[in-house]
Design a protein around this nucleic acid. Structure first.
Lengths: 162, 162
DNA sequence: GTCCCTATACTCGGATAGCAAGTGTCCGAGTATAGGCGG
DNA sequence: CCGCCTATACTCGGACACTTGCTATCCGAGTATAGGGAC
């Protein structure tokens, strides 16, 4: 089990977009340049965020992406679900109904105990992601990132933002 | 993100092996037959369980697999880690150090806030899996599975066990 | 000076290849068993 | 009748193809902008 790179990229992008001046948009190409990742591939994941209503796209010149909601209203789970899809980590294929002891469906009304146990762990994972928001992430970043880096980032943004 | 089928199969196999008479072993082929899954592929996952010390293999005639520890000493996390590998779901590639604002390593001593947040969710997932054991799974199965199915399973085992 | 129009340059969006990991399979090495043979 | 030996059949274990989904890329549709021209 392994999450795709897109999750990491999407989260970093959300933090960056949240730090922009209100209403400003940043093109996907700039986001890719800032993070040092392939532009075309990052665009694909940004489209997923757009379709999920997490970011909104602004067309034309001076266009780009910006957060569609307040950073405090975007949970990490929202981002992960948008990029990875909402299919749970565990998939129960009901193998208990197969093999020589297979029986009519009425004997399997209770859910599979193994599926229940795995879903429980999955729920704990999702709950922890739901609990945290992009706003909290931004606050932590501001507190932990070196002032030097923070300054360089601000300078770079002022340079690329028109 | 999606776990492989092997996790489901391995958990079901552990529950079945835990229900065997003490000391008895069941061949991989029988386990595959009982669950209606490809024998050769299930064998691959059972090898992983064997290398992790969860089950032990008995060679030769009357051989097969049996639990290497008491069911109460095997957590679901043990099984998942054995089959899927212990690599966490989220992988941080430190993209914060890339791009135009890249700086010397001494400015990145604090861990990446995004990685920390994701690791927190991963830890919650693993903790929930660690909390539950094969023994508890067996108890739940005994309580929830239809008596008819339970009887058929017992009959089948008495038939195939020599 | 102000308004409108047009050409432009830039943006997103979906459709298109390449590759790694999970999926599925096979055959060889090793061993406890079962039967036969000898004492 | 008992013990030993051998052949056997069965087991696990690792090495070998195949398919799905993640990774990476491109070009076309659409739009806000900037500049020029007319009034």
């Amino acid at each position: 089990m392994q999450l795709g790179q897109g999750v990491e990229w999407a989260l970093h992008c959300c933090v960056v977009l949240g730090a922009l001046p209100h209403g400003a948009a940043l093109p996907a190409s700039r986001l890719a340049e800032y993070h040092g990742v392939p532009p075309a591939y990052l665009a694909k994941h940004l489209q997923a965020l757009s379709q999920a209503g997490i970011v909104e796209s602004v067309a034309g010149r001076r266009g780009g992406y910006r957060l569609a909601r307040e950073p405090g209203d975007i949970s990490l789970l929202d981002v992960v679900d948008a990029v990875e899809g909402e299919t749970g980590a565990f998939r129960c294929t009901e193998i208990r109904r197969r093999g020589p002891t297979a029986s009519p469906a009425r004997y399997y009304q209770r859910p599979c105990a193994i599926a229940v146990a795995m879903e429980r762990a999955d729920a704990a994972w999702r709950a922890e992601l739901q609990r945290q928001t992009i706003a909290e992430l931004m606050a932590t970043v501001r507190e932990t990132v070196s002032p030097v880096i923070l300054r360089r980032a601000r300078d770079w943004f002022e340079e690329v933002l028109p």
